[in-house]
């Protein structure tokens, strides 16, 4: 349990590094959000809140968290609620949760930009799916 928690923190740091490295090349992929959504399938609300707040702490770019960061933090919690309500534990839950989570993020924060730039959304989702899948496989193996 503790090992999984520490591993998740390392995965989150890796997601942060990847997101910032890609952003420096003008490619924006929400690796951090993908990781948090996958974490919702493995951790309880308390641990998930720790991960979310750590991500917000690193990603937050202004002295006071904005509505964008609030939406960013709510989505993994929504994924946890959905996971608990539906009890959907198979690996197919990961891509569905990530696609829905990303869609919710775009529609909540910048619906006009989303409608005008489909390709950016698709690149973001693709990167999130690949990274989220790897995170799921890693945590699932540890659970086994």
């Amino acid at each position: 349990m503790r090992l999984r928690f520490i591993l998740a923190i390392l995965i989150l740091l890796l997601a942060c590094a990847l997101q910032f490295w890609f952003a420096s090349a003008n490619v924006f992929i929400n690796f951090i959000l993908a990781a948090l959504i996958v974490f919702a399938l493995f951790f309880d609300i308390w641990e998930l809140l720790v991960f979310i707040l750590f991500a917000v702490f690193v990603v937050n770019w202004a002295p006071v968290p904005s509505i964008d960061i609030f939406v960013f933090g709510i989505i993994p919690i929504a994924a946890l609620v959905f996971h608990n309500v539906s009890a959907w534990t198979s690996w197919t839950a990961v891509p569905v949760a990530i696609i829905c989570g990303f869609l919710l993020l775009y529609l909540a924060i910048a619906p006009a930009a989303f409608l005008a730039n489909w390709e950016l959304f698709l690149v973001d989702v693709f990167g999130g799916l690949v990274f989220g899948g790897l995170v799921f496989l890693t945590l699932d193996r540890l659970k086994g």
Partner: peptide
């Protein structure tokens, strides 16, 4: 602790971000 850092000491988060960024 994290909530306090986010609201009262966000600069530490920026430092972590700078460390992780190229």
């Amino acid at each position: 602790i994290l909530a306090l850092l986010i609201f009262f000491a966000p600069s530490y988060g920026w430092k972590i971000r700078a460390w992780l960024s190229p």
